[in-house]
Amino acid sequence: MAELEQFFPLEIGRAHEVCGAGASAFAAMACGADRSDNARTILWLQLDWQSDIVNPVGMTPFCDPSRIILARAKNQQMLLSCAEEALRSGAVSHVITELYRPLDLTAGRRLQLAAEMGKATGILIVSEGMGSNAAQTRWQCSPECPTSVSDGHNPKTAGLTVLHWELIKNKKGTLGSWKVCWNAQAHRIIVVSEACQ
């Protein structure tokens, strides 16, 4: 089983995909955990008719909300064109895009090239099974039921939310599955246990 440190924080200059109920938390943690010099503005792209909004107050444990710029587009095509423009410009360090339709290979590849050119990290929040093959990594994230994790035996994670992250696609390396927690003080991920397959 591979170590999580190899894949997280996410590789810079690539576009990654994430799906599942914990996807937006994953994106927020990916931005917060990146402590390189590269960490600058985050562009969060959403649809303008979407009712779920990112709550900046809820974002504070993960990353600084003043880094976030939220842009609202009409449809998926606009979302993708804005994401590409932003990734290519190099003015932002992370571009998080919430997609609602399947992503085709051409669009995925274009984002990949744009991210490479602007040295930015692209995070695409997709629905299950709607990603493209061009993604560098694809993660499936879901929160874990509190009883299934035996509390108390690990004092590091007492009282913290346990998340189940599964790497289901990786262009460079092996897949993996981890149970993790977020440490808000240290701004980093704690691996609780490597989930048994």
Binding site: N55, T60, S66
Partner: peptide, 14 residues
């Protein structure tokens, strides 16, 4: 931004 003052707030709000 207000630091975490005990009561947690959700990440997504609707």
């Amino acid at each position: 931004w207000p630091r975490n003052q005990g009561s947690q707030r959700p990440l997504r709000l609707f």
